[in-house]
């Protein structure tokens, strides 16, 4: 019997991920149960103060806003991605159309956000256009609100909904639709009752891949959101860098992680059900 070299190959990855992932996550978890230090950091004393201040109305407002933005953006993205993915999957030039979706993502994430600031800002293209046509008398600020956040999140995230949907629709057997239509179903009814249940796994993947980055988003609300449209990510950064309440920053992180994990578990259950 020769030697099992498996553990040797795996040792570096295990060491690295434990040191720079597991340990940091556990420290963050433990910080959420401690008292806030005077100049940032923590006091090594057990406390539930951080979780109590989560129930503060200001924090709950941010949480509610985060949920509204995440649910609305996810719903709009999936609703737009379904017909888009369907059209691409049924086209004779699939690869070309997929490239058309991918190319805008060749530029930097922040530049994609910036493009919308250049369009919607008070000195932006839309304002110049509306003023020059006389539809508007003075500059309006279209940015720094909840709708701007949703728009830009959709702009930067929608491929994560299109690709999983495309790959399941592409595998779907469309003769089933013909059969349903031969039996008298309208085209819409056939697609809704026959195709949608068959691409369920693609739909769950699309929801998960768009909901997670949206729920934990921080860059988009920071750049195109206002103070009354803050998301949890902005709150974490403020508690970490400005207010320096690290236990509170940690407890918000714990909430964010828990929501994500519940989503992932739900997803894995729906996938394993499908296999049964």
């Amino acid at each position: 019997m020769r030697k099992n070299y498996g553990p040797i190959y795996v040792a570096p990855i295990a060491f690295w991920l434990i040191a720079f992932l597991s340990v940091p996550l556990l420290i963050t978890l433990s910080y959420s149960f401690m008292e806030k230090g005077l100049y940032g950091g923590v006091e090594l004393k057990f406390s539930l103060a951080a979780y109590k201040s989560l129930l503060n109305t200001a924090v709950l407002k941010v949480l509610l806003n985060t949920i509204v933005i995440a649910v609305a953006s996810t719903a709009i993205m999936v609703a737009l991605a379904l017909p888009t993915a369907y059209y691409i999957a049924r086209s004779p030039v699939k690869n070309l159309l997929l490239m058309l979706i991918i190319i805008p993502f060749w530029t930097n994430f922040l530049i994609r956000i910036y493009a919308w600031i250049a369009i919607l800002g008070s000195n932006g293209l839309l304002n110049s256009f509306l003023i020059s046509t006389g539809l508007l008398d003075e500059h309006i600020q279209f940015l720094y609100n909840r709708y701007a956040i949703i728009l830009v999140i959709i702009y930067t995230t929608i491929p994560f909904a299109i690709f999983p949907l495309y790959s399941t629709i592409e595998k779907f057997d469309f003769s089933l639709i013909e059969a349903a239509m031969d039996l008298g179903a309208s085209k819409f009814r056939a697609l809704w009752l026959v195709m949608i249940p068959n691409i369920r796994s693609g739909i769950t993947t699309a929801i998960l891949f768009t909901f997670i980055p949206t729920f934990g988003n921080f860059a988009v609300p920071q750049l195109v959101g206002g103070t009354d449209s803050w998301m949890l990510g902005n709150l974490i950064v403020r508690e970490l860098n400005i207010t320096r309440n690290w236990p509170l920053a940690s407890s918000i992180s714990v909430v964010l992680t828990s929501v994500t994990m519940i989503g992932v578990l739900f997803f894995m259950r729906s996938q394993s059900k499908k296999e049964l």
Binding site: L21, P24, L25, I27, T28, I212, P213, F215, G216, N217, F218, G233, I236, L240, A249, S250, S253, L256, T257, T260
Partner: peptide, 8 residues
């Protein structure tokens, strides 16, 4: 979420 990795 990336922010969790960054914070921790």
């Amino acid at each position: 979420p990336e922010i969790i990795i960054g914070v921790s």
